[in-house]
Design a protein around this nucleic acid. Structure first.
Length: 256
DNA sequence: ATGGTGGCCCGGCCA
């Protein structure tokens, strides 16, 4: 089963590229983020014609997450599975062919002294509670999406330049490590050790072409899933060309 | 230190 995550940065703006990509790559399950539309505007029929079941949790012009699945999808949960519901559309979960799959769009944080940063830290703690509520560390769970956190210094080009900024702070990395400590593996890191492998590049300043990005789109999987993961990759080509998202898809192949 | 690009939708906000 090929599972992908992609922050599309507006599904309305990206739909032609998304459908072309689905035809080429044929992922079985897709976690999508930043659809930036209402549920009524979500092009479910377009995806259904391509063989996908869909679930969307939107709120309008910001945020919005979705799941596409070619394998039977059931038990859809919009929002957190436990605790106070988030007031923004950032998380959706479903059972896709026996694997619990959660698509997440973690709050950006904006700045270390901003209220939004505290929201981000709280959000990550609730995400751990969400995982605990869904299953045990021995279960089959993938939480994939835009975490807006670069887990380690090797996930950014120049750590010294980012001191004092979001995405790399100790507190953010700690709440991510705490989530993984529950029983999730960063499957990309199980397969690649080198630095300078990214999933997001700012539109500005020619960052993509100059290799300035961050690895902030993560696929976290319980051990049972990670053990069956034969391949992981970032589809950099999808960051090229006309009207790209600023994120590239990340993919993992889970053997039956 | 700022602003750069590109979403939202048309004046800034957000990333």
């Amino acid at each position: 089963m090929l599972i992908a995550t992609w922050n599309v940065n507006s599904l309305k703006a990206r739909l032609p590229r998304v459908t072309t990509w689905l035809e080429e790559v044929q992922p079985d399950v897709v976690c999508m983020q930043e659809t930036k539309m209402n549920d009524a505007a979500f092009p479910a029929l377009t995806f259904e014609e391509m063989g996908y079941s869909t679930a969307h949790f939107g709120q309008g012009q910001w945020n919005g997450v979705a799941l596409l699945s070619k394998v039977p999808m059931k038990n859809v949960v919009a929002n957190f599975a436990v605790g106070e519901p988030d007031h923004e559309a950032r998380i959706i979960t479903a059972d896709c062919g026996g694997i619990l799959v959660t698509s997440v769009y973690v709050p950006n944080g904006r700045a270390l002294d901003h209220e939004h940063y505290q929201y981000k830290l709280r959000w990550m703690k609730q995400l751990r509670a969400h995982a605990e509520a869904l299953t045990t560390p021995q279960g089959k769970l993938v939480i994939a999406g835009d975490y807006n956190i670069a887990p380690e210094d090797r996930d950014v080009p120049d750590p010294a330049k980012l001191v004092g900024q979001t995405h790399v702070s100790d507190a953010e990395r700690k709440v991510l490590a705490d989530l993984c400590g529950w029983g999730l593996r960063d499957v990309f890191r199980d397969h690649y050790q080198e630095s300078k492998l990214y999933s997001w590049w700012d539109y500005r300043g020619g960052d993509f072409h100059q290799g300035r990005g961050m690895r902030i789109d993560l696929m976290l999987a319980t051990q049972a899933v990670a053990d069956k993961t034969s391949w992981v990759g970032v589809d950099r080509n999808s960051r090229k060309g006309e009207q790209p998202s600023d994120h590239a898809p990340v993919l993992m192949m889970v053997d039956a």
